[in-house]
Amino acid sequence: MAEFWSSLVAFFERLSGQFPIVFQALNSGFLQTLKLFAVTLLGAIPLGLIIAFGSMSRFAPLKGLTRFVVWIVRGSPLMIQLLIVYYFPGMVLKNNWWGSGETGRFLAASFAFIINYACYFSEIYRSGIQAVPVGQQEAGQVLGLTGGQIFFRVKLLQMIKHIVPPMTNEIITLVKDTSLARIIALQEVIWAGQAFMKGRSGISGELWPLFFTAVYYLVFSGLLTVLFSRLEKKLSYFRT
């Protein structure tokens, strides 16, 4: 028992010595995580809407093609998609258009994440659009509203209310999914934590920094959960 206690104390002493260095490294890794997260949302939120319209198109070939692509993207692992997006240009086309270094990896990761998440979002949007009863459209029509007015003044908020809960889930998943970019060596927070195993800034063979990265994800997804539940509450004044 005493032995266990003393080794625990020793561990925390070591840890507190290393903490400032590790903390700084993890912070800059997490900044990259946040960047990937933000860029993905910025790209996938509008792109998802375009894909949603494509998948509901009355032009059968467009609808078929869109749904096929969505099926491929949603049905295969994001990790594989990352690898293909990053390595395909260089290995197969002999032209690595992503460019070299961290910038190239970030571009490739952003591309893969935006496409992947846009496909997920498109399905959520589609369910949101279809959830608004036709009666709303028709009520707007007989009141002489234009198509645009019906969409923006009547249907949009009802759609948003409907999609907030599934979008929250998907966005929380994105927080954690950014760690997959580690597979193409993007220097996000997991990569930063792992570096202390091999050795970095005079620290090596340490596993705790990697474990500690989980705290970043927890805090961030916790913040987002609070934010989105506020939004959900704000929209709870009406029922559809």
């Binding site: 009863p133 709303q136 028709e138 009520a139 009547v154 908020l157 009802q158 209310k161 009406f238």
Partner: peptide, 9 residues
């Protein structure tokens, strides 16, 4: 309409 179709928001 039979189902009113008021704008809920």
């Amino acid at each position: 309409f039979q189902q009113f179709n008021l704008f809920p928001q």
